[in-house]
Design a protein around this nucleic acid. Sequence first.
DNA 1: TGGCAGCCATGCCTCACAGGCATGGATCGC
DNA 2: GCGATCCATGCCTGTGAGGCATGGCTGCCA
Lengths: 300, 300
Amino acid sequence: MELRHLRYFVAVAEEGSLTVAAEKRLHTAQPSLSRQLRDLEHEVGAQLFVRNSRGVELTPAGQAFLEHARLSLHQAGEAVAAARRAARPPKTSFSVGFLTGQEVEWLRRLTDLLQDQLKDIDLRVSSDFSPHVADAVARGDIDLGFSRIEPKPEVSYKVIAHEPIVAILPRDHPLAAQAAIDPRDLDPRAFIGYSDTPHVLRDVVDRYLRDRGVAVSPTHFLDGFATGISLVASTGGVTLLPAYVEPLLPTSVVSRQLTGNAPVIEVAAGYRADNPSPVLKFFLENIDQLIAARSAGAPR
Amino acid sequence: MELRHLRYFVAVAEEGSLTVAAEKRLHTAQPSLSRQLRDLEHEVGAQLFVRNSRGVELTPAGQAFLEHARLSLHQAGEAVAAARRAARPPKTSFSVGFLTGQEVEWLRRLTDLLQDQLKDIDLRVSSDFSPHVADAVARGDIDLGFSRIEPKPEVSYKVIAHEPIVAILPRDHPLAAQAAIDPRDLDPRAFIGYSDTPHVLRDVVDRYLRDRGVAVSPTHFLDGFATGISLVASTGGVTLLPAYVEPLLPTSVVSRQLTGNAPVIEVAAGYRADNPSPVLKFFLENIDQLIAARSAGAPR
DNA sequence: TGGCAGCCATGCCTCACAGGCATGGATCGC
DNA sequence: GCGATCCATGCCTGTGAGGCATGGCTGCCA
């Protein structure tokens, strides 16, 4: 007796017909099936079916056999499934955090880099303000953070990109008619400044304006790109933001380059050097690939 | 995958060696076994054993597989056993009682008669004094009793044999020198009589002696053949018993026929006519066969 | 270090039997 | 009575299980 016999028996018992079971479930010829069931009955030593011109019916012996045959087949299937589960290594957990808005580009590049390993990685993604991303890295809550360089003793950074800063202004603003904007043309009171949260960006912009003798006295302050765009749209003011926000602008808001040498701001990959994650190790070993793909103008 | 694979796998897992399992449990060649297990691993998609020069060890996947493989094999065996149980009609209970000593002949003849049905009969056998056997039949405790004809309103009898009565006496008794004993030569005081229990035998013997003008005054009384033989051996006296005891005599005791027309005693099959037992029905329908076999001098 | 023993793996061959096609027998419905 | 449907039986072919011979690797011992 083999599992084959049990499979055949159960199929016929459930269909109530050798011909139907052979064609629809077993994809075999009815005469072969007939013979296999006869052989099974001979081995068991009991009649399992009553044959008639309309098909077959189980005998009491056949009914008893069916219950255990099902259990046997089920356990055989479970044996295979259990072995496969036991053989599969546990998925490696890997948590990635992004400065909000940066995931548009960097999540795609990251998953491209991890390509073949992705099926074995339990990847978790979050986005937040840059300092919060850095905090989470420091705490070990996330393995890798794409943010500004937020100085923290526990966190190491690798710069992965330099983004130019651009002017963000209403489409109908007088300066929008120019291809590039001179910062000295800005209205000091209509300039939208920065809260403490994007302090890296604030420092970069402050230094840029100071170097050009431009003094601004903002009355509105943005926390992130979202609030920045919102304030530009509602106040009609102008602000400076990294170029990554360009694809995220609404119709009423446009970006314009700045004249002369535009300031740039770094995007960095932040991590804890003592994190033993093999995925992190792989990422750091292959970070040049990530940077090269961006430099080559890989499609976004 | 077939049950064969599971059987092979479990055997190897338990023996920890392909060679040992092949030789001692599976009675197959090691190379065949090696190939079957490789095929199984290929189908499961996981390595189930670690091979080394001392045999094999289960991997975690193999361990998980083993648990379910055992269950599958067990259920397959249960399927067969359950079907066989369901197919087998319940055993018919049949209780037979014998006058002690009669089972030597009649149990053998009864089982011969029931031959093909025996596997379906739960046969119980007991032996006792004849009146006790009759009582048990009357009560319905036993279905068939081989005894004397003990008159009881509930019990019907069919005579199955007539046994001659013989003299039972010590080997060194003066009368033992004769081929046949004349009852008038008996010592009236040394004759061993009968208690109330074998009253049918007592009546037969009393009538026989009275018809020949022989008066005995026994001082010892037997209950059954066993006490009869014991008293003959210990008192040196003589008694008369049915010939069935002859094969049961010890060396110091012999039997001798009686001169002239020897008395006979009936052996009867007793039963309740209202007993619905199919085995009893069968027995009564075929009782002539039982009697004929004895008449034909069938080997005892 | 070399030889031997023990174990599992691989190559080749044979044969048993699973599976397919053709056909037969029984039953049922019109 | 005929045709349809179902299971059973005969015959044939190809697959794969099982056996023997041999190879490769490891470990032990002189």
